[in-house]
Design a binder for these strands. Structure first.
Length: 298
DNA sequence: GGTAGACCTGGACGC
DNA sequence: GCGTCCAGGTCTACC
């Protein structure tokens, strides 16, 4: 029995825009259809039940479909996860107002862009972010896929699909296993250390979502995690809805160089300078900028 | 506060 | 085949 219900959205909203906001949809346990109109995610609910959450856009909101029956508290749990994943809590009015005056961002409001796909837990987003560093994207996809297939909890009616492993599941493993089975390389010790800190209760990552924590303090706490440096911290801050810092990576350097420096080699300072005027919206302006470099490649 | 050098892995590339 | 390079960085040691 499939259970369906709808969550309201704050227009402008576009589910495909969230799905395409970055590469996260390509990382297990996310999945989408060929046209990237719908989103699927395998999740272990607080009740312990493992479900596939299917999300699609309807006339006035987003439709959630889960193979049931579910208890009321499980439906609330699923709704909360979906709200966070696709940013239903976010009000982007101020960013849209600023973006109207910038041709390179003129598309954001009309296309309902501005929300960035995120995992239900910050633990998962930190692990995935660390697994994007110093590797090709194909390596990230491979490592995340291996973590899910070796350590995730299976979906009852399709064991080939699994959840992203909980901190507890990773914590009981060891570095050698993470290296050998998930092929995490030197990142294995970072992931294991993080998982054990969270599983033991020493580190409350979900507390990082508290809007009362100042962004500089939040950044400091993220940087204290082994494997999280300037880029990763800024990327995670963006996922947490804080846009004051730019996730400057090699890709950013390439785009900014082609946008304003004739393709000449540049450094972090040039990227920062390019978006300084956007203040608290720096991260969003950077994320959704219509880069000439990418347009030229098309 | 700034910066070499090392770091797992696997795909791309040149030979 | 085989060796080298390096990819959506970070850590450590050293200055």
């Amino acid at each position: 029995m499939s259970m369906n219900w709808t969550l309201p959205v704050r227009p402008p909203f576009s589910l495909p825009a969230v799905i395409r906001s970055h590469g996260w949809v390509q990382l297990a346990p996310f999945a989408s259809d060929d046209e990237q109109q719908t989103l699927s995610y395998i999740s272990e609910l607080d009740s312990g039940r493992v479900v596939e959450i299917q999300i699609s856009e309807t006339g006035g909101g987003v439709n959630i479909s889960v193979e049931g029956p579910l208890e009321e508290r499980e439906m609330v749990d699923v709704s909360d996860r979906v709200k966070w994943m696709i940013g239903l809590d976010q009000d982007l009015a101020e960013f849209y107002a600023r973006a109207r005056g910038e041709p390179k961002l003129a598309h954001v409001e009309e296309q309902g862009r501005g929300r960035i796909l995120r995992s239900p837990s910050l633990f998962e987003d930190i692990v995935k972010t660390v697994l994007t560093t110093n590797t090709a994207w194909s390596g990230t996809v491979r490592m995340v896929g291996a973590l899910v297939s070796h350590f995730g909890a299976p979906l009852a009616n399709d064991p080939s699909r699994r959840t992203f492993p909980s901190p507890e599941r990773v914590a009981v493993s060891d570095e050698g296993t993470l290296r050998a089975q998930a092929r995490l390389g030197y990142r294995a010790s970072y992931i294991l250390s993080l998982a054990r800190s969270v599983a033991s209760g020493a580190l409350d990552l979900e507390g990082f979502k508290n809007p009362e924590i100042g962004t500089p303090e939040l950044r400091k706490q993220l940087l204290a995690i082994k494997g999280v440096g300037d880029y990763a911290a800024a990327n995670l801050l963006v996922l947490l809805g804080r846009y004051d810092f730019l996730p400057v990576d090699s890709w950013a350097l390439k785009c900014v160089s082609h946008e304003w420096h004739d393709g000449q080699p540049i450094g972090r300072a040039e990227v920062e300078a390019a978006f300084e005027a956007w203040g608290a919206f720096k991260g969003l302006a950077y994320w959704f900028w219509d880069w000439s470099y990418l347009s030229d490649e098309r």
